[in-house]
Amino acid sequence: MTDTPRTPARARLGRLVWRLLPFSPILIFGAAWSIYWNVAHPPLAVMPSIANVVGAVIELAQSGSLLTDILASLWRLGLGALLGIAMGVAAGFVTGLNKPLATFLNPLLVFFNAISGIVWLPLMIGWVGIGTGLAVFLIWNSVFFIVFQNTVLGVQLVPEVLEQSVRTLGAGRWETIRSVTFPGALPYILNGVRSGLGFGWRALIAAELVGATTGLGQMIFRAADFSRTDIIVAGCLIIGMIAMAMDRWLLLPIERRTVQRWGMVARSEGGRPG
């Protein structure tokens, strides 16, 4: 961190500090929280202690309800996202390869993207009731439109010269799509999937708050009824960890092995609805 030559001991210390640096906000925040809690002694209904939160996680894990809720949430997310991605990519390809169709559908895409997700909740409760169907619909809805829009964009932005060059090698329409259009559009598709999952994950928690009997969102909502702030905080932390794990172990490896390996960068931030 400094440019002056250092003794081995100082260098080791420097490395240690550098390694621990990412945990500093948590440590500082945790310390401040503990000090405040020990001075003010707020009731559990207002604020838990760190020990309370850890206790809540253990309690929930032991009763098995945590696993049930996590699995319920992940199942909904997986199903909704898978449907959304598959349909979004397919529809995106058909539309992206067909310019007049893309022009025709664009206003609809912009509009339905703007009301995707949670906005459908009141209407859908009436149609499908409370439960998995509702959550899956909202996730599908969030993922589908973003992936759709990004796929259309990606397909349209594949340089024409790449397609032409492969056609002079004798490639037919299908081979051109397979070897040029799909990989060419992949950065955009992945961008869409990534922000789609972001929207989907948020829609899921929101949907479960009011529209489910199980799931992490419902776990938090139930806890609020009994003023169990320890469970609420524990739930939030678990939600964050799952999202981070998905990003790190699912999306990042895919991106590393494709888009980054090929030296390509998507030129959009992806999740821009509209």
Binding site: V46, W201, S227, I232, L237, A243, M244, D247
Partner: peptide, 26 residues
């Protein structure tokens, strides 16, 4: 960057709505 980026990414995963029950209590 080293200090804050990890925490930031973690917070990004907790949707704001998840904090709603706690925010209502407070």
């Amino acid at each position: 960057a080293r200090a804050l980026e990890g925490t930031l990414r973690f917070l990004q995963g907790i949707s704001g709505v998840a904090w709603l029950p706690l925010a209502i209590i407070w």
